[in-house]
Design a protein around this nucleic acid. Structure first.
Lengths: 349, 349
DNA sequence: ATGAAAGCGCTAACAT
DNA sequence: ATGTTAGCGCTTTCAT
């Protein structure tokens, strides 16, 4: 309909007020009488006024847009981005995403410079390149990170990975498993290391089989999980349960287990980590440790918005609690394995 | 290092020229002597000059940023976005993504208004909401769509879905399959309809079993594929091969086939569509029809950039050719099935 | 080839 | 409570 978007000046003219009054009304700022404000808002709405965020920002104000720097490669990241989008919108903030490919070694400075021309703050989600963050340090823009970035000097929102892995092992142990395999994640990532540490600690603490063969490398991806589980299935004495460091690995592992003519969970129990949407869509549905994605997004947005309003972030590090989601892929170990438990030592295959 | 970003004015001052000369030099525009240009560029580089895109755009120029409106829910979309990003960068354009959730019914107008303040043009990827596009019609910004949007009045980049589905069926038929199941996609989507149409046409043309039970509904998602394949596996006479309308459906189908104690491809051949990255990571690796994602991204970017420079788009519709990627999930049908072919009619089970 | 002036749409800062 | 002024960083247009 409207040829070109109305500007604040137009609103002001129609309402018979100055631009500043219009600005204050539109931005919910004090200094306008209620009647005038209502009138101006009505007119703005009528005319289909859309504030020019670029101009707002340029003139030193707030654009009410937050930026996200993310690698969109994994479902995990995408879901987080979606969460940030809706959390932002709930706070009347739009979101723009700067997508980084993983092959991407561009220096982050210019990206932040670009973003800072438009957005009021940035949330960084880079699960796969922790070192990247260090170089963002000298930014003149509020920054919050999710998931990684232990070394970076800004607030971090993370799941308690250690606690999550504990939950996983406790769940398997409670079902009666004593011989649990672990498919590790990408060792460059703090999240992977925390999960591994918890696995080892719990294994010791609960007196589970500590066979080193039970720990195999993975890479947080399907293929890595597949290969890892294949190795576990070929052990002289395979585990009765597997804890995969994330869901994608678990999905890969599931295929390998099937390929070895065993079934989940009758022969092998399988538990993942993340509760990414596929977890609920594979068959059997995957028992997993849920990262509270929605909470994480919300915490990130809230922290960022606080920083934008000049309030110091509540904490350098917000640790959110994961949660066990018991679905179909875990069960008690097969009976014959159970009966072997007492005399396990002498057992060869 | 630098406290605040240098502006064009600073560059100009240091170089001892006017802002306009600096602007022209930095933007590779004519009207500057070679020496001056070199000098200015050197200084800009030294000072770490980053153009303020918002200001460029505000003052009526080009920001050299393109926008993408997308639903990041599927791998397919994410990969496309990544492709657009690198195609854009190759043309010296940055990309900003506006992420739409699928639950999202916000009117597109304001989103475009927001984007238009920053970007020079927009690529829309909304495989799951075709109708959305109609409302974008009165935009004052160059727009290109990918994958859907048959009704929308701007250039569309698409894969030749009909041709792709033909390739799939021809492949299966060449292997000797006569009884082919089809897991359909989301019927609201033109892509799904084209693939279905090709399936029916080819089935008739090649004289394959035309049993209506062989066509089952899917939704382009894993779960839908699982359910659909389950139904196929329970038929009195199951197919020897399945064509899933996309890879995610195929992945779901694979699980269902396994669950029915059959194996891929020994008992059942399976072919997908898209060649999303999981296709190569499932086990067995999925034979599929590749959508030329990279080409599509590049075509979209090129078309958009042409429109931005005021050149009329080359075509209202660019149809790219899909390609068969034969991997491990397809093979000749089992011998006993093959031998039944002549007398199939009398066979019950 | 170069520069000066004007203005994009908006908001801080300082009026009144 | 409201308005005026100045300016954000840039590019257009119109000089020279």
């Amino acid at each position: 309909m409207k040829k070109t978007n109305p500007t604040l000046a137009e609103i002001a003219r129609v309402a018979g007020v100055s631009m500043m009054t219009a600005s204050r009304a539109v931005n919910n700022q004090p200094g306008v009488s209620d009647e005038k404000r209502a009138e101006i808002l009505r007119i703005a709405d009528d005319l289909g006024y859309v504030a020019n965020r670029a101009a707002q920002r340029l003139s030193g104000g707030r654009s009410h847009v937050i930026g996200v720097i993310a690698q969109l490669h994994t479902l995990f990241t995408s879901e987080l981005v979606l969460g940030i989008g809706s959390a932002g919108r709930a706070a009347n903030y739009e979101m723009l995403v700067y997508s980084l490919s993983d092959a991407d070694n561009r220096p982050p400075g210019p990206i932040l410079d670009l973003l800072s021309q438009i957005v009021d703050g940035v949330i960084v989600i880079l699960p796969f390149q922790s070192d990247y963050l260090a170089s963002l340090s000298n930014a003149k823009l509020p920054i919050v990170t999710i998931d990684e970035g232990n070394d970076a000097p800004f607030p971090k929102i993370m799941t308690d990975n250690y606690q999550g892995a504990r939950l996983a092992i406790e769940h398997l142990a409670a079902l009666g498993h004593r011989r649990i395999g672990f498919i590790a994640g990408n060792e460059g990532l703090a999240s992977a290391r925390d999960r591994a540490r918890a696995f080892h600690d719990m294994r010791a603490q609960l007196g589970l089989d500590a066979d080193p063969e039970l720990v195999v490398h993975g890479n947080f991806m399907q293929q890595g999980g597949f290969l890892a589980a294949q190795r576990l299935m070929r052990l002289a004495e395979p585990p009765t349960a597997i804890f995969a460091a994330n869901d994608m690995s678990a999905v890969g592992a599931m295929a390998a287990i099937r390929e070895s003519k065993r079934s989940v969970p009758q022969d092998i129990s399988l538990i993942g980590f993340d509760d990414v949407s596929v977890a609920n869509h594979v068959h059997p549905a995957l028992t997993t440790i849920r990262q509270p994605l929605t909470q994480m997004s919300r915490a990130a947005v809230n922290t960022l918005l606080a920083m934008i309003s000049g309030i110091a972030p509540p904490a350098e590090r917000i640790l959110l609690s994961p949660e066990l989601v018991a679905r179909e892929s875990t069960a008690a170990p097969p009976l014959e394995k159970l009966s072997q438990k007492p005399g396990r030592k002498g057992m060869t295959r």
